[in-house]
Amino acid sequence: MTHNAPQTSIVGRTRQEMAKRLAQDIANGSYVNLGIGIPELVARFVPEGRTLIYHTENGLLGMGPSPEPGAGDPELINAGKRHVTANPGAAFFHHADSFAMIRGGHIDLCVLGAMQVSKDGDLANWSTGAPDAIPAVGGAMDLVAGVKSVFVITQHCTKHGDPKLVESCTYPLTGCGVIDRIYTDLAVIDVTAEGFRLVELSPGVDFEYVQERTGAELLPIAHT
C-alpha cells in the first residue's frame, strides 16, 4: 500500500462493493428503510436465504424492485419518487402511520448517505447551510431519531478530498448521536462512546491510509 498513489488510482471498495458489504450485516427478517442514492444499492446484494422487508416512508412496506421500463405506475413510487413495485405481502398506509413506524421504533434499520458524520455519531446530510440553497429536509430527521439502528454508507472523503468523518460536523445537523456504523470505500467503522473505532479495512487498504483521510482519531480494531 502506497501513500502517494496518484489520485486516479482506485483504492478500496466500489459503491457496489460497499453496498454488498453492508448487506451482509442485515439480519434475516429485518424491516429496513433505505435512503436515496448509494443506500438504494443495498437491496441488490441481500445474501441468499435472507428476506428483508423494505419500508419506504411515503407509505409502503414490502417494496419490490423497479418495474420494467414503461410498466411503472405513477402512484406506486418510493421516497425518491421513482417507480417501484409492491411485493406479495406488501401494505400501503398513510404518512402519519408511516412515520409512527419510524418514530415508534418499529423499523429495525435505516441506511442513509452522509455529508458529514462526527465521532459522536452526529449526522449532517440535508443541507450545506449555503444561504442561496433551498432548504429541504424530508424524512431524514425523523428516521435518525426513531429507527433502532442507523447505518451510513458513503465515500470516505468528499470529491475534493476532505474527510466526511470528522471531529464535529460543520454542516447543519440532521440528528445528534444517532449513527451506529459507517460503511465507506475504505473501511467499516463503528461509532462508539470512545469515538470512531475501526471494524474492518477494505481489501488493499491499511490503517494509516484510512486515518490520514479521517478527520478524527481512528481507534484500532477492538480485539475482544
Binding site: H95, A96, F99, I102, D122, G139, M141, D142, A145, C176
Partner: peptide, 28 residues
C-alpha cells in the same frame, strides 16, 4: 421534518394541540 409534518396534521385533525417528538432535536 416530514414525519413531524404528517403528525402535526394528524394531531390537528384529532383535537390534539401539540405533541412531543424526538425528530430535529439538536438541529437548526
Amino acid at each position: 421534518p416530514q414525519g413531524t409534518l404528517a403528525e402535526r396534521i394528524r394531531a390537528g385533525g384529532a383535537g390534539i394541540p401539540g405533541f412531543y417528538t424526538p425528530a430535529a432535536v439538536g438541529t437548526p
